[in-house]
Each structure stands twice: as C-alpha cells, then as structure tokens.
Amino acid sequence: MVFKIILGIGLTLVIIAGIALPMVSNPSSFFELPVVPGLEDKARIIFFHVPTAWVCVIAFITSLIYGIQYLRTKEILYDIKSVTAAGLGFLFCILATVTGAIWSKFTWGAFWNWDPRQTSIFVLLLIYGAYFALRSSIEVEEKRASLSAVYSIIAGLTVPFFIFIIPRIVSSLHPDPIINPQGKIHMNPTMLVIFLSSLTGFTAVYYWMFNLRVRFSKLLYQQQMKEQE
C-alpha cells in the first residue's frame, strides 16, 4: 500500500517537473533546466520516452529469462510469468514507438524515416507480434510454452546483430549520440534527477503491473484446472 502511494506521488512529481520546469540557457537554481541545443522544449520527451523504451527492453529480458527457466524446469508458472512480461513489453514497446514517432514528426519532419533506433524498435515489435501469433496457434499448453520460449531465445539472440549491422548501413540522427557523444551521462543535475526518478518510477509501475497480471493469470489457470476435474 505504502509502495503504491509513494509511486503515485513520485510519478506525479516527475510528470509535473518534466513538463512544467522552465528551460533557460544558464540554469542557476535547481528548478531550472538547461536548453538542449537544437531540441529546446522537444528535449522534454527524454523523461517519458526513454523510460518506456527501457521498460520494453527490461520486459523482453524478463520474458526471455522466465522462458529459459520454463525450459529447465517445465513449471507452467514460469510460462505464465514469461507471457505476462512479453505482454507488458509489447504494450510499452507500442508506447515507445508512438511517442518516438510523434517526436520525430516535430524534430525530423516525418513520423517514420527508418532511423536505426526506429528500425530496432520495429524489429522488437515484429518479434513480439510473431511471439503472440505463435502462441495463439498452438493449443497444447506445454507445447505452446516450450515452443514460444525457444522462439524468444532465438529472436533474442538475433537482436545483438543489429548493433553490428545497422551502423554499417545507415547513420543515426537519434539524440542519444548527440547528447552523450562519449557514452557517459553528463546531464544537468536537475535533469538527471528527474530522468532517473522517471526511470525508476516506470520500472516500478512495470513491476506492479507484472505482479498484478501474474496473480490474475495464476487464478485463471487454477480455475481452469478445477473446471477440468
């Protein structure tokens, strides 16, 4: 209960701070954000878009790990956890794609222009889509669980290839290499605090949703088992 109240207040503060704090060229006090050259107010998306993409990746990895756990132990609970994580990952993936596309319209002039980041999130969407298409076409529970786990492992292993391949084909306009050319985070302290608390907040929301849905699916599964008896 306390966790939920703290999370609610925290995320409200993050949203207010992310949207309402003024951006000035020389921030002197803690409630002012620096101007990001070339992006201005559009830079505020970092507080909401990056956490959704982050949660999307976290969810994918969670789903993968539970999938491996299922293959090792053959416990149906792990499959429930794996599919729950994948479902949430799909949701956050869509959120990240849509927020990114809207931002891209106002910054680069088009909703979609196959920037490397857009390509990689598109592939992630495709993998999630294929994963659910596969699941819906297998009726036997154990078979569905092990095949979808195998598929997500294979799909997960092809993802690193994009890191090597995409830079060979196109260069990115994504602000990440522009804001952090050395790969280090050097943001203004206020920005960093808002960003990190948004990241934590979104991860906590994901964790909460994950637990809720796992509980729900477990109950549903037990109900089905009873009906079968």
Binding site: A130, L134, S137, L147, A155
Partner: peptide
C-alpha cells in the same frame, strides 16, 4: 517450430522475418 502449430503456412514468414532481418 511451426510444424507443431495449427496455422503452418501463414505463420512461417511471420516467425522467420524478425530472425532473418
């Protein structure tokens, strides 16, 4: 993988594309 599923032919390109991309 698809040999065990119900919709064999249609699912094949869908599953392969992200892997082959």
């Amino acid at each position: 993988i698809i040999a065990k599923s119900n919709t064999k032919g249609t699912l094949y390109p869908v599953l392969s594309f992200p892997i082959l991309l």
